[in-house]
């Protein structure tokens, strides 16, 4: 085949046609891409509008971390209403995964008023994330009471608790961040106490009664299977447990509630004991033996029992600190209030 023949052959025509079609397509698409490409700024604006439901103007806020359980990725102040939009990644998910959420923190008068919206953006390794419905996320607006979200209150269909924990951590991280930004850091009065390893110190509170006894409203963290318990414990002036009530049981299911130590459920095991008595329940002091066996609290729900035991140890060990530190002040304050009521 000579060169001349080749230029007249079908093969040449085919190559030319195909090249032309490809070239025209490429040029057309490049032009269109230049005209229609969605820029990162636009994508961000769209994401915000989707969360907000209306278009708003934002300004970027410098990011810092105030909470070990979450990383603040991005933070914006909404110019229109002063709210904050935070992108936060919560740790502690299933299989050490994370969940990244957009959180709208409602701010007015220089203080956090609540959470307007939580939207899940992405996750790492949370295969059940689809079961966290919008309905479940809307609960955050109601769950916000005192600056921290308590994991167990969030009801989702994700049976893996980790996913839930990671979302709550993300939200709490965002709340801490905004609070710090506004200068409203609440001092954690229990932070320096003993036995706070399994206690949610920010959720726990206490009150000093008129007879000098102290009532703790303790919220524990989760430990492996069970999630947190809420326990009310009253300690009298001698450091002895006089009243003990489990107000919320963190056991996985009713089966495990049934397997808990009866004396721990109704408090008969603890009542009348001081710290030495609580410590003596386990032979080795107040730490769980690694094999979970051979102790009085080793039932089918050892971890649940242990959380309650820990709460009791926290209360009996620390009651005197409260009496020495602020017993007088707080007691006085309460009497005053009582007085006003009487008048």
């Amino acid at each position: 085949m000579t060169v001349k023949q080749f230029f007249k052959s079908t093969a040449f025509k085919c190559i030319i046609t195909l090249t032309c079609v490809l070239l025209v397509s490429g040029i057309f698409l490049t032009i269109m891409n230049g005209l229609l490409a969605v820029s990162d700024a636009e994508r961000f604006e769209r994401a915000i509008n989707k969360i907000y439901g209306k278009s708003v103007k934002t300004e970027t806020v410098a990011v810092a971390n105030y909470n070990d359980n979450a990383t603040i990725d991005e933070a914006y102040r909404v110019k229109d209403d002063g709210n904050y939009l935070i992108k936060s990644t919560g740790k502690g998910g299933y299989d050490n995964g994370t969940v990244t959420c957009w959180i709208v923190v409602n701010v007015s008068g220089g203080a956090v008023k609540g959470i307007d919206k939580v939207v899940i953006e992405s996750n790492k390794g949370q295969s059940y994330i689809d079961r966290v419905s919008d309905k479940a996320l809307n609960q955050f607006t109601e769950l916000y009471t005192d600056g921290i979200i308590y994991t167990q209150d969030l009801i989702t269909n994700a049976t893996v608790k980790g996913t839930k924990t990671a979302i709550c951590n993300a939200v709490n991280g965002a709340l801490d961040f905004v609070n710090a930004l506004l200068g409203n850091v609440t001092e954690d009065i229990y932070a320096e106490f003993d036995f706070v390893e399994y206690i949610e110190t920010k959720l726990t509170s206490h009150e000093v009664n008129e007879d000098g006894s102290i009532t703790f409203h303790i919220v524990t963290k989760g430990l492996k299977e069970p999630s947190g318990f809420k326990v009310d414990i009253t300690i009298n002036a001698d450091g002895v447990v006089t009243d003990y009530t489990v107000t919320e049981n963190g056991s996985t299911s009713n089966t495990y509630v049934g397997q808990m130590h009866a004396g721990i459920l109704d408090g008969t095991l603890f009542e009348g004991k001081d710290f030495a008595g609580i410590e003596a329940i386990l032979d080795n002091g107040i730490s769980l033996p690694s094999d979970n066996s051979g102790t009085e609290i080793s039932t089918g729900a050892t971890h649940s029992n242990y959380l309650c035991l820990y709460a009791a140890a926290f209360a009996t060990k620390n009651y005197d600190k409260l009496i020495v530190d602020d017993g007088g002040n707080e007691g006085g304050g309460e009497t005053d209030e009582g007085g006003t009521e009487n008048e």
Binding site: T10, K13, C14, T17, L18, V21, L22, S25, F28, L29, M32, N33, L36, A37, V38
Partner: peptide, 29 residues
Amino acid sequence: KVIPSAVRIPCYIVIIATLVTFARMFLEK
């Protein structure tokens, strides 16, 4: 009448792919 029949399928695919890419850009925007 321009496209030789030997390469018509690849040409069609390119044309369709171009249109789809365009549709995708349009919808995204």
